[in-house]
Structure formats: C-alpha cells, structure tokens
Design a protein around this nucleic acid. Structure first.
Lengths: 138, 138
DNA sequence: AGTTATTTGTCCGTATGTATA
DNA sequence: ATATACATACGGACAAATAAC
C-alpha cells in the first residue's frame, strides 16, 4: 500500500510496486495493466499520479503505452547480432522524437552508436546486440 | 510560435523548438533555460504544458533538471575508454530509478551492458565508451 | 457500417511542499 | 528570512484512438 507520510512521492511508490510485480514475473511480457482510472481508484490517488508512475516505467523501457489501450509489459524480441569492426567505439544515447519514429522504437529504448573511422551506425537497442570479434586462432 | 490548430500537441511543438535551439548551439551546454513560469507566460500556455516539453527533452538526455533551479543543457564530460574483451555482447538499456541513483546518472542516460562469459558489466553511457580490440599485426 | 463505451492524451486551473538562490 | 523555482497532487474538461457490440 502507499503511504502519504513516507516522504516518498506517491507516484514513485506506485512505480516501485508495479516495477516489482513486473520484474517478479507477476505481470508477464505482453500482459496488460489495469486502466489508469481503475488503478487510481484502487489506490485512492488521482489519475495524474497514476500517469506519472506509468511514465516512469515507460521511460525505463518496462512498459509500452498506446493511446486508447491499456499499458502493457514490453515484449522483448530476440536480438539480432551485429558484428562490430575492430577499433570501433560503441556508445549509447536516447533517440529524439523524430529518431524514435524513424527507428520505430518505443519510449525507454536507447540507440546503440557504433563508430569506426568516419562511419557511424545506429541500432535500436531492443533489436540489436553488438558483438566483438572472436579471439584469433594462432 | 506555437499553433493551437496544427494538430500537434503544444508541448511537443515547444519541445521541438527548444531542441532545435539546443542542437543549433543557441543554448550551449551548461546554459540555463528560462524558468517554467517565464516560458509559460511567453508562449501563453500553462506551466503544465511547459513541464511536459521539458520532460521530453530530459528523457532525451538533452537537459538536466534540479529541483529549485532552472533546467540547463546537459554537459557532456569526456568519455572514459573501456576495452571490450573478445566475443563480448554489448547492449544498452535504461536504468531503473535505483540504478540511476547508484550510477549517479541523470534521466535520459542509458546504461551500456557488456556481457562476456558469465560476467556482465554495466557502464553509464554518459561517461564511458566501449572500444573493440584493434586489428592484430601479423 | 456505425454507434457506443472504454481508455489514453492534452490542457487547464489551483494548491501546497521543498529545494535553491 | 525572502523570493524564486521545481515537485507533487488534486480536480475538471474535452479530444482522439481503440475496442466492443
């Protein structure tokens, strides 16, 4: 239950409990959360607080929200392996809104940036894993 | 200026214009945005809409917000190079709230995940770049 | 095909708390 | 201590997308 005098924000407490349920497998991938209104009523908090909690989990890449539908636990597709060249530099950053549309990634999913020489390649982190070359035989 | 009949949400339009100013270098790293109240007044929108726009940019890792202070453009520290072992798998994901505290990263900064064998190492993507081994001499 | 109900998205207002300057 | 500024929480209203029938 949520505690109004805990010093912790209500929406953070709610996000923590929902996250725990997701990571524990209580809410399986693809599973739907109750509607914002239902959650708000069941915890006696405003819909605004519920939306903030959901926004937290969405920005962590744990859930996905589509307008008109209840939020659902994000499904993780099998990752495609991409071979990194030698002497490459690999970083990650969040996409802008336009890049999110372009790469078709939901909120909370970073981009992998692979740089080598002049080139820079971008990959959606929910579909790609970058692999370093295997050790050389000799 | 913002257009109420454009079909685009006000806060998205505002986020786009602010992002453009940041990426164009108009607002330099470390530079402060006007306060939420000032922005709201200057665009004739609610403070709530301004906060949503700022939340967008924060989740993209472009700005940093500290309570009581105006938001500022995120500074990018020089990246420490970490050598990736051979046959490693490199992915990225967003940290949970607890991990954000543990790694001391602001919102909008992913974690780099380097897996090899049984081990899995995590790095804050705003401080570390992962490097693949250089080509072998022969 | 079309209508209704459900649900999330956007926008506004107000109030209060808490951190910073 | 005062002023400024962001954070939290509530409320209401309407729009827009989806789902159900």
């Amino acid at each position: 239950m949520l505690d109004r005098r805990s010093g912790q924000a209500l929406y953070r407490q709610l996000a923590d409990t929902l996250r725990d349920r997701i990571l524990a497998g209580d809410l399986p991938p693809g599973g739907e959360l109750p509607s914002e209104g239902i959650i708000a009523k069941s915890y006696n908090i405003s819909r605004d607080a519920v939306r903030q909690a959901i926004a937290v989990l969405r920005s962590e890449g744990l859930i996905v929200t589509v307008r008109g539908r209840r939020s659902s636990v994000r499904r993780q597709a099998p990752l495609e392996e991409v071979r990194a060249p030698a002497a490459a530099r690999i970083t990650a950053r969040m996409p802008t809104s336009a890049e999110r549309t372009h790469f078709d990634v939901p909120e909370g999913v970073p981009l992998l940036v692979v740089q080598f020489g002049e080139t820079e390649e971008l990959y959606a982190a929910d579909r790609v894993v970058v692999c370093t070359p295997p050790p050389r035989k000799r």
